[in-house]
Design a protein around this nucleic acid. Structure first.
Length: 579
RNA sequence: CGGGGCGUAGCGCAGUCUGGUAGCGCACCACACUGGGGGUGUGGUGGUCGUGGGUUCAAAUCCCGCCGCCCCGACCA
């Protein structure tokens, strides 16, 4: 490719709305442009990267035996009503009507469509297991799209769905997919971790997320320092490092805490640790169908800990998404404003985190404005109805497997694999006949990779202050040839064209920066580094006079002088090939 | 969904308070010079000032509505 014929769209300054480095660099290097909130056009350079990531995923999926299909982006409501998700999904599911007033949605995922296909096309256990996948556009009307293509509304996803006669068979494919995902992310050169995860509203039981480690990641993941245990923070059960010392219950006192407005201030005033304070969070309740009710539920946590909304939402009787009660509802139920409420109201369901049940002589709100109880104790001064895991684990907590302490890192979720079980196949009556001729509901798994997000995650891990540093196998081009003094030296032109032809013949994808003298060398250098071509060769009349050219490896920035005769062999060693 | 901020040329911004000629830098076009790190000079192209209404002799500027975009947010007891 000749630069003069290509749509290079680099920017010196990054647009004001780009927050994270990958978003800034993708805009500056001319990979993407925003159309509207959460909607992006992939320009030629970016599209090449996207297609390469997709191809690596496709090759590994094919290698695993999965079969590629292509399903519609637009889906009819009936299918979603059958699975129950037309009701269950919130505004994230973008719905619309066609000219005949029939309801449709844009597919945020394809469990319904695949289940519909297999219930019609797969009839016998002999056709199982099967694994079908596609690489295709999804749409999710995100509450808050951000970070460019990292969390966009329209994005490209590889989604695979496996079908089985039983759980054992699913387990085998699940493990195969786990290995396949590792192979994919290894090939992409990412620093990633598979972690135990929550399965969310997709349903099912066992689930792993694949996270690319990056400080800009939106998710928190926890690791055990003494074992392989790794999990999403919302799933990890940890034991707090602090446990109260056993002691005798003391006499309870009601104290004036009018001046204190937070847990920290209450603890400071009373000269105790925040871990000795019980904080009471009041959330909205729900009925059996998950509909919001007027009932309030109190959640009790230690003052040094934070609530995991994911854990709380999973409890029955709590409205999801978690919603805190407003102040007026709290006053009417507890008789005091937020700030002084505590456990001990008979008519309110009260759920305590494990760690608060161990407290002795603690402090909690007195349900009287400006008053707290000092040296309160369970059973005598207040009580809870149930115990549950409500807290977000913290750095230093004991690992659930008991083999060490937990550390927390941030990650970008680029892949997720689930064991769905029979959630969709049962609802949509997808059955096969088994050996005995009896109809059995298929067991399903599903496996996703965010193709567009992988590109952003890769940049988060591969950049410097000059720009992107592409790994060879997903770089838009492998090599950029930069001729200088081309207008003055026929030799430079001739040699550049020769090298361009020869390197392409080797299988390299090459960009020849043939822009004329109006584009100064500095611009060519700066752009080549911003875009991040892994390999660069500079050809000038000066260097050719010494029968040499200059080679630079983007990752190290180190320049080497290579003889014109030896350059092709040098590149063969330097470039690992198209894989 | 709640709170805050912003909307002026492709990008980054000034001008708005105090109403009166729409400006700067980058990019783009032309010419000349320059040529190993986002050149120099001269001359240009490009704007319904998000949008609808109102006030006024006069609105980017003041008032009201709408739309779009960005950031932050349940940890309160």
């Amino acid at each position: 490719m000749h630069t003069s014929k290509y749509l290079l769209a680099t920017l010196k300054e990054s647009p004001a709305d780009a927050e994270v480095i990958s978003h800034q660099l993708m805009l500056r290097a001319g990979l993407i442009r925003k159309l509207a909130s959460g909607l992006y056009t992939w320009l030629p350079l970016g599209n090449r990267v996207l297609q390469k990531v997709a191809m690596i995923v496709r090759e590994e999926m094919d290698r695993s035996g999965a079969l590629e299909v292509s399903m519609p982006v637009v889906q009819n409501a009936e299918l979603w009503q059958e699975s129950g998700r037309w009701q269950d999904m919130g505004p994230e599911l973008l719905r619309f009507v066609d000219r005949h007033q029939r309801n449709f949605c844009l597919g945020p995922t394809h469990e319904e469509v695949i289940t519909d296909i297999v219930r019609n096309e797969i009839a016998s256990y002999k056709q199982l297991p099967a694994n079908l996948y596609q690489i295709q556009t999804k749409f999710r009307d995100e509450r808050r799209p951000r970070f460019g293509v990292m969390r966009s509304r329209e994005f490209i996803m590889k989604d695979a769905y496996s079908l089985h006669v039983d759980q054992d068979c699913l387990q085998q494919t699940y493990e195969l997919m786990h290995r396949t995902y590792c192979a994919i992310f290894d090939r992409l050169g990412l620093d990633y971790r598979p972690v135990l995860a929550d399965s969310g509203n997709i349903g099912g039981s066992t689930s792993h997320e694949f996270h690319v480690l990056a400080d800009s990641g939106e998710d928190e993941i926890v690791f055990c320092d003494g074992s392989d245990y790794a999990a999403n923070i919302d799933l990890a059960k940890g034991s707090p490092a602090y446990t109260p010392k056993p002691t005798n219950p003391l006499r309870v006192q009601q104290v004036d805490t009018r001046e204190a407005h937070s847990v920290e201030e209450v603890a400071e005033q009373l000269g105790i640790k925040t871990a000795q304070v019980v904080k009471t969070l009041v959330v909205c309740g729900a009925d059996q169908d998950g509909q919001k009710t007027d009932e309030l539920v109190a959640l009790l946590l230690r003052g040094d800990q934070t609530l995991s909304s994911i854990k709380a939402e999973k409890l029955t009787g709590i409205f999801s998404p978690l919603q805190f009660a407003d102040d007026s509802a709290i006053v009417s139920a507890f008789g005091s404003p937020p700030g002084c409420i505590g456990p001990g109201k008979d008519n309110i369901r009260c759920i305590a985190d494990h760690s608060v049940t161990e407290l002795i002589n603690f402090v909690c709100g007195a349900n009287v404005d400006g008053q707290h109880l000092f040296n309160a104790n369970w059973g005598r001064d207040c009580q809870y109805d149930e115990v549950a895991d409500l807290r977000k684990v913290q750095q230093g907590d004991l690992s659930p497997d008991g083999k060490g302490k937990l550390a927390i890192k941030r990650g970008i979720e680029v892949g997720h694999i689930f064991q769905l079980g029979d959630k969709y196949s049962k609802a949509m009556k997808a059955t096969v006949l088994d050996e005995k001729g009896k109809a059995v509901v298929m067991t399903m798994g599903c496996y996703g990779i965010g193709i567009t997000r992988v590109v952003a995650a890769c940049i988060e891990q591969n950049h410097d202050d000059r720009g992107i540093i592409w790994p060879d196998n997903i770089a838009p081009f492998h090599l950029v040839i930069v001729p200088l003094d081309a207008h003055k030296s026929a030799q430079v032109v001739e040699y550049s064209q020769w090298l361009y032809a020869e390197t392409q013949a080797m299988g390299m994808e090459v960009m020849l920066d043939d822009r004329d003298k109006k584009t100064s060398p500095g611009v060519k250098f700066a752009e080549s580094e911003l875009i991040g071509f892994p390999h660069r060769i500079v050809i000038s009349a000066r260097s050719l006079a010494d029968d040499s050219v200059e080679y630079t490896w983007r990752r190290s920035g180190e320049k080497q002088t290579i003889s014109t005769g030896g350059i092709l062999n040098f590149l063969k060693n330097q470039w690992p090939g198209s894989q």
